[in-house]
Nucleic acid binder design. Structure first.
Length: 282
DNA sequence: ATTCTTGTTGCATC
DNA sequence: AGATGCAACAAGAA
């Protein structure tokens, strides 16, 4: 599930732990979610550490403690939640709870992830680790510009636009449905080679990327609720779904390695490019 | 039973 | 050399 807005939602789920000191820790160091993430370091450092701050950037989260940084990526099926409990009561954790922090004064902060595509990591010390500070600039910040967008598209000029929008090193936080939403609003075909976006459409595309991020955060970052009815999101998985703008049918097909939904009447592939792609198949 | 999945990575190939 | 595409990872839902 988790894309930009949902990550922001899940970050807040551990808010009840802010300012509190971790007592016991339940940690499965052999779980795949710890791959390369220094589970042993976390197991040693987390008990007794105070949770100072939580941060989200794209699909990545960081929890800053007084002894180091805990990184959380939710993958496909990860989730964070908090549970309340009377002091001294140890709550049961399900089989997929690979990390549980029990604040000294009660409750539990749980990370669970059945599919284990998610990722946990620990870095000791006060300095922001490379896995946090090395991320691409936020799409809602000043460093994301029509120029930087153009650079990303140039860099992957022959890849389908859909695939490029999913690249986290350029578009942190964009996931499958946000990419489809952006392309739909921008009236661009998902299979259009990124380098073939007309220069005159760059500003609009940039504005739409920002808009979808802002809208998603506003609508779903607070309560993980549903998207507004007029979004493509609400129509894209329904068989027989129709485009809210044209009323025409939606198509669903794998593009750029991911299931993609688009409105053919609105998002057309220029004939020249369609012909080229047909040639390359033969 | 089978096929689907809102993510990332490593590796083969171009 | 750099870009691209695909399989793999794993489990639950439809």
């Amino acid at each position: 599930m988790p894309e930009l807005a949902e990550v922001e939602f899940y970050r807040k789920q551990w808010n009840p732990g802010l300012g509190r000191t971790v007592g016991r820790v339940r940690l499965n160091a052999r779980a795949r979610v710890w791959r390369g993430g220094d589970a042993d370091g976390a197991a040693a450092a987390l008990p007794g550490a105070k949770l100072l701050e939580s941060l989200a950037h794209g699909k990545q989260m960081a929890f800053r403690l007084d002894s180091g940084w805990l990184g959380v990526h939710l993958g496909m099926s990860g989730a964070l939640r908090a549970e309340a409990s009377p002091e001294g009561v140890v709550l049961a954790a399900g089989p997929h709870a690979h990390l549980v922090l029990y604040p000294e004064d009660g409750g539990a902060l749980v990370f669970e992830d059945p599919r284990m595509f998610g990722r946990l990591r620990w870095t000791a010390g006060p300095a922001a680790p490379e896995w946090w500070s090395g991320q691409a600039p936020s799409l809602t910040g000043p460093e994301f510009t029509p120029q930087s967008l153009a650079g990303a598209l140039r860099r992957h000029a022959r890849a389908p636009l859909k695939a490029v929008l999913l690249r986290q090193e350029h578009f942190p936080g964009i996931g499958n449905w946000m990419a489809d939403e952006i392309l739909w609003r921008a009236a661009l075909h998902p299979a259009l080679p990124a380098g073939a976006v007309p220069p005159r459409k760059l500003r609009a595309l940039h504005a739409i990327v920002v808009e979808v991020c802002r809208d998603a955060l506003a609508e779903m970052g607070q309560h993980n609720g549903d998207a507004p009815e007029h979004w493509l999101f609400n129509h894209r998985w329904r068989d027989g779904g129709r485009c809210p703008k044209t009323g025409g049918p939606l198509r669903r097909e794998e593009i750029g390695g991911r299931t993609t939904c688009w409105s053919p009447r609105r998002q057309r592939l220029p004939r020249m490019i369609a012909a080229n792609q047909a040639n390359q198949l033969s």
